[in-house]
Design a protein around this nucleic acid. Structure first.
Length: 194
DNA sequence: GTTAAGATCTGCT
DNA sequence: GCAGATCTTAACG
């Protein structure tokens, strides 16, 4: 496992969203290591994108989006769930990649316990709220540097030639629904939805 | 101080 | 396939 290069995140958000597919998300908990492969992402832009939280300027909630690239932006939605993003572009821009689904690799029993289910491995992290629950990600990671433990991104070091990326419309938003900014691993059954 | 809406998930039909 | 749960955030008065 290799730590992802710092300059990887300081780029166009759509590029980062594609690059993150196939990378590992790792979380060290008291119960042990939890990890998985990122299989679905969405890009949120600062310009001409009303669906992005940063589109109406910096607020207390979205401040982390304007922080250093490679940091986490975590927010609370619908009274129950957290959503996990990776900040992109230079500091001060306000763009990020939402991690929508992860294919579980290590710590599957821990994920099941945290999710409160005993079967259905595809249900463990196939959605932004689900994966935050499985990986124990909450507001305390808002602004966290994702190259540092206990929550970090990594690469297997192996070339991922077999991954094919499909771009589609974004999901679950009520504005800017016409943008092809959702990216997923073609044919992967751990995505949130087809 | 008050209010409306939300980058979702689950359970039931 | 669809409606309800649930509560923080931000906009407005």
């Amino acid at each position: 496992m290799l730590s992802l290069r710092n300059d990887l995140f300081n780029q166009a958000t759509e590029s980062v969203a594609r690059t993150l597919l196939g990378c590992y998300l790792c979380r060290e908990t008291e119960a042990g290591l939890v990890s998985g492969i990122i299989v679905e992402t969405e890009a949120y832009l600062s310009i001409n994108d009303p669906a992005c939280h940063a589109s109406r300027g910096k607020t207390r909630r979205n401040a982390a989006m304007f922080g250093s690239p490679g940091n986490a932006y975590v927010y609370f939605v619908y009274g129950k769930y957290y959503c996990f993003n990776v900040v992109t572009r230079p500091e001060g821009i306000g763009e990020a990649v939402l991690i929508r689904a992860v294919e579980p690799v290590e710590g599957i029993d821990i994920m099941k316990k945290r999710r409160g289910i005993s079967s259905g491995i595809t249900e463990l992290a196939s959605g932004p709220g689900k994966l935050c629950q499985a990986f124990a990600i909450d507001k305390s990671f808002d602004g966290h540097n994702l190259q540092e433990k206990p929550l970090y991104l990594a690469d297997s070091g192996e070339p991922d030639d077999r991954i094919r990326v499909t771009a589609t419309l974004r999901i679950g938003i009520t504005s800017a629904q016409d943008k092809m900014l959702r990216f997923m691993v073609d044919g992967n059954k751990f995505v949130s939805r087809r």
